[in-house]
Computed example of a mutant assay.
Amino acid sequence: MEHKAGLRERKKNATWELLRKTALDLFEESGFEDVSVAQIAAAAEVSKATVFNYFPTKEDLVIGGMKHHTGDAARIVRERPKGTTPHEALCGHYLHLLEHGAPQVGLTDNPVFLRVQRLLVATPSLLIKAMDYRRQAAVLLAEALIEEGNAPLTSRLVASQLLHTQHLLVEVNVRKLLAGEPLEEIRAAARAAAEHAFGLLEHGIGDLMRRGTEPPPPDTSYTHDGCRVEYHHHAESEVEAAAEQVLAEPVEDMLQTLANPDRR
């Protein structure tokens, strides 16, 4: 029984790898948006249902792994030692991942990881999905903090700031990787960047970047409340022009257009 279970598991893993590799090949060749799940299934010689059994959405074929990490921050904070802040726990964990070159912090030159990152950067719909996974992570972290009795607003602010800081740090690492910078150089700079970023969170930004010179003249294309000066004027002019065009149209033509919208 154990032998059969092992064979089944290996077969499942092999199918998973085949589907993902096939999908990445097609996405790189034709673009994520222009490849259907049916095409992926045909190229892998499996049914469309089989693809969905392994990857519930097309996006999962590229960034489905992110889904499994949305609860990481909440778990780390829940398990932190007594007397430790969420900031200390997540900063320490991030630095630990940097030391081990974990994919979660963008410090790996694994070819599949790099392929995924290139697709992610080039595909708006994948970026939106990735942003949603990050949003879910922040929600779960905030819920963990609220469960401890912390104020909801403070919990959400802390969760958002901590995870957004981490995301920006990872983004810098990935961009350097994709630009071809040596991994060891990125790793060295990544630790200094992390200590700086988490240090700003710890000590605050309220007194940073205080202006030492006079500001430039106000932008006259905006009103005091932030609206463009001519925005409303343009909008009203367009409405007036459209109304005049309708009123100038013969009544019979208007009636025929209303009766048959496909006429035009």
Rank of each mutant, 00 (worst) to 15 (best):
E33Q: 12
G226Y: 09
E59M: 01
L126G: 07
A44R: 08
V46Y: 08
L97K: 11
D72T: 09
T22H: 05
L126S: 09
H164M: 14
Q161D: 12
Q245K: 13
H93M: 04
F55W: 02
P218M: 00
K21N: 11
Q256I: 10
D60Q: 00
R8T: 04
D207W: 11
H96P: 00
P111Q: 04
K4Q: 06
R78L: 12
R228A: 12
T50N: 01
F27H: 02
H224C: 07
W16K: 15
G83A: 04
A89M: 02
R264W: 11
H233N: 03
M254V: 08
P124S: 06
L127I: 09
A189F: 00
E143D: 15
G212W: 01
M1P: 05
H164L: 14
D60H: 14
K4L: 13
A194Q: 09
H232Y: 06
N150K: 15
S160R: 15
T165F: 09
A241H: 13
T84E: 12
M209Q: 13
A130Y: 10
I186L: 11
E230G: 05
E143L: 13
L141V: 07
V121W: 06
A193N: 15
H69V: 11
L201Q: 08
T22P: 10
L208V: 11
E244L: 11
E240T: 11
A42N: 04
E9L: 14
Q166F: 07
Q39I: 00
H167A: 14
K176Y: 11
V172D: 13
G6T: 08
H233Q: 10
R78I: 03
E9I: 07
E79W: 05
V77G: 02
L162P: 08
R80Q: 05
R156Y: 13
Y54P: 04
L97I: 02
I128G: 00
G64V: 04
E238K: 15
L98H: 09
L169K: 01
R210W: 10
T223A: 11
M209N: 15
L95V: 15
R115S: 13
L162M: 13
L255K: 06
E59A: 15
P215N: 07
A192Q: 13
Y133D: 08
M131K: 07
V112Y: 05
L114F: 02
K21W: 00
V46E: 06
H234S: 03
Y222W: 14
F113G: 01
A44N: 10
R75T: 03
A102T: 03
K11Y: 10
A248K: 10
V170Y: 04
D219G: 07
G92V: 01
L140D: 05
A42Y: 03
E147C: 00
K58G: 01
A248N: 09
S237Q: 14
H196P: 00
K12M: 05
A44S: 11
I128Y: 05
E238S: 12
V35F: 03
A192F: 04
K58V: 02
G106T: 01
E79Q: 15
H69L: 09
N53K: 11
C227R: 13
H164G: 07
E181C: 05
E147I: 03
E9W: 04
V158P: 00
